[in-house]
């Protein structure tokens, strides 16, 4: 492990609140240890701004171990930055070069209004889940966990889909602002598992309708979502959702 320091120029989207127009501000950061995570680099910037009496950059973050899905920004045009299958909090500064300019923009989509700086409102994703991303069982009285055997391969496929952290990078990077990968992953998970079968038709119809109503765009199979997904969720889940939806709508 070699620790070095780099100097960076940051161009960050600053927007006071949801109504403000916003613009890019340029900041110079010196002596950034390459062992830092991207968010720690932003922490350093914010400490610097605070000491200078300026408003720190607001950004969402929580677990900082790549699982909560709270963090996310577009770095030099790529959601969560240049490392594949890595969230912003797990991206380390050793992947950047001395003197590099980093353009940091919030996740953008019509369905994700900006609250402030890099903080966006992703509640539309919750509403998609509320439309049917569940198995309608109440607590209690469930059959034994082993009552329904599930082939291990099927369980693994369902787990692949269920790994979604709901960060919204798929939408932010989709040229169409579509939420198909997010929605497809949940529909896939529950259509693969027998527990999800009783409601699969209603689920597909309802979740797709909500996705459309929330103002997400239409998928044109651009594959950007899959390329930036920090959990490597495959667009085969979108294909599966397409099948589920067609079956639910036409058959």
């Amino acid at each position: 492990m070699t620790t070095t320091s780099i100097n960076l120029k940051l161009e960050i989207w600053r927007q006071k609140d949801s109504k403000a127009t916003g613009n890019f501000e340029t900041y110079i950061l010196t002596n950034i240890s390459t062992d830092m995570s991207f968010l720690e680099m932003l922490d350093v910037l914010n400490e610097q701004l605070t000491r200078e009496g300026q408003d720190p950059v607001a950004f969402d973050h929580d677990c900082r171990e790549g699982i909560c899905g709270m963090c996310g920004a577009v770095v030099n045009g790529i959601a969560h930055g240049p490392e594949p299958e890595t969230t912003l909090c797990q991206l380390h500064m050793r992947h950047f070069k001395e003197g590099e300019t980093l353009v940091i923009e919030p996740f953008r989509s019509r369905a994700f209004p900006i609250h402030k700086d890099l903080v966006t409102d992703r509640s539309a994703l919750d509403r998609i889940i509320q439309a049917g991303g569940y198995v309608s069982v109440n607590t209690g009285g469930m059959p034994d966990g082993n009552a329904t055997p599930i082939p291990s391969a099927t369980a693994e496929l369902a787990m692949d889909a269920a790994a979604c952290i709901g960060c919204g990078a798929c939408i932010a990077s989709c040229p169409n602002g579509a939420a198909m990968l997010f929605t497809g992953a949940k529909i896939s998970q529950l259509s693969l598992l027998p527990q999800g079968h009783p409601e699969r038709k209603e689920r597909a119809r309802s979740m797709v309708a909500t996705m459309d109503k929330e103002g997400f765009g239409n998928c044109t199979n651009e594959r950007e979502c899959e390329a930036v997904c920090p959990k490597g969720i495959s667009i085969s889940n979108i294909a599966r959702m397409n099948r589920e939806f067609v079956k639910a709508s036409l058959l």
Partner: peptide, 23 residues
């Protein structure tokens, strides 16, 4: 024990053995 049953019913994709039982 009830927790496991509940979570399986909700569609939590627990790891499974080849025979389909919970690992």
């Amino acid at each position: 024990n009830n927790i496991i049953d509940q979570c399986v019913a909700q569609g939590v994709p627990f790891a499974r053995e080849y025979g389909g039982t919970l690992a």
